[in-house]
């Protein structure tokens, strides 16, 4: 089999599992592009951000950094916090991506929530090169996201409508993730710790200064409750067996 044929075969196998991501990324990408253009950021900026950062919720969050006082350190810290979940994806994919050779940097670069959800479960069909298979899944998802953002950026400037309240798409996104996590997770303590520490710090430090204290408070409380969490988890797993 020629090299090109092998690649086309992998692309064909990679496309079907990405269809749900296609819908999601196009929709969220368009909303992101429209939101960016409603703040005066043209398609070029939107596409550059989607191409380089390629992180949905962090990009939505970054709209707030782009529309307030210039604070690169806060932007970095908030991005680290919001994407901390990727650490977990990385740890889960260590084995799977171990022997992916030249593809490895790009596979890690593109390990978004959605790509992770496919590559951690989808298996390449027999006769398909697994490295190319994972590469195409990652590449297709990346293209959908950039395409959606570009379309949104164009629409935002072509179609004029009242965008007042569109920022709420960010709040909606996080509320939806919160509810989704709440439903799937038996242990609600980490979620409650997150909300309570933030509310207390918001009241204590005010809306413009509460983020860093909240992060520290969350890290501290999580670190202190580690033993209890591990013990409880072992107990639960023990019961399950």
């Amino acid at each position: 089999m020629s090299r090109l044929k092998e690649e086309i075969k992998a692309l064909k196998a990679a496309f079907p599992p990405t269809i749900p991501v296609f819908t999601g990324y196009i929709f969220l990408g368009i909303a992101y592009g429209i939101l960016m253009s409603s703040k005066g950021y043209g398609m070029g900026w939107t596409v550059l951000m989607s191409l380089l950062a390629y992180a949905g919720s962090a990009q939505y969050l970054a709209v707030t950094f782009l529309t307030s006082i210039f604070n690169p350190l806060l932007a970095l810290l908030m991005t680290l916090m919001i994407n901390a979940r990727h650490l977990f994806y990385g740890i889960s994919m260590l084995e799977k991506y171990k022997d992916t050779g030249k593809f490895k940097p790009y596979l890690i670069f593109g390990l978004t929530d959605e790509t992770f959800s496919i590559t951690c479960s989808a298996k390449p069909p027999a006769g398909v090169n697994r490295n190319w298979f994972y590469f195409f899944i990652t590449l297709l998802d990346h293209c959908y996201w950039v395409l959606g953002s570009a379309v949104g950026g164009i629409l935002g400037f072509m179609v004029s409508f009242n965008t007042k309240g569109l920022d709420f798409v960010l709040t909606a996104l996080f509320v939806v993730i919160f509810v989704g996590q709440w439903k799937t997770q038996k242990e609600h303590k980490p979620a409650i710790i997150g909300v309570l520490c933030s509310v207390i710090c918001l009241i204590a430090f005010g809306p413009s200064n509460f983020i860093i204290p909240s992060m520290l408070a969350i890290l501290l409380v999580l670190t202190l409750s580690r033993k209890q969490y591990v013990a409880k988890k072992e107990l639960m797993e023990g019961r399950a067996q």
């Binding site: 919001i82 980490p190 997150g194």
Partner: peptide, 26 residues
């Protein structure tokens, strides 16, 4: 793998989304 890091990987995602909801409503 480091057990403290993998613990944070397990719990931090849930706390952070809580923080982000509050951040949006600040």
């Amino acid at each position: 793998s480091n057990s403290y890091i993998s613990y944070l990987g397990q719990v931090l995602p849930y706390s952070v989304i809580g923080l982000l909801v509050i951040y949006c409503l600040k």
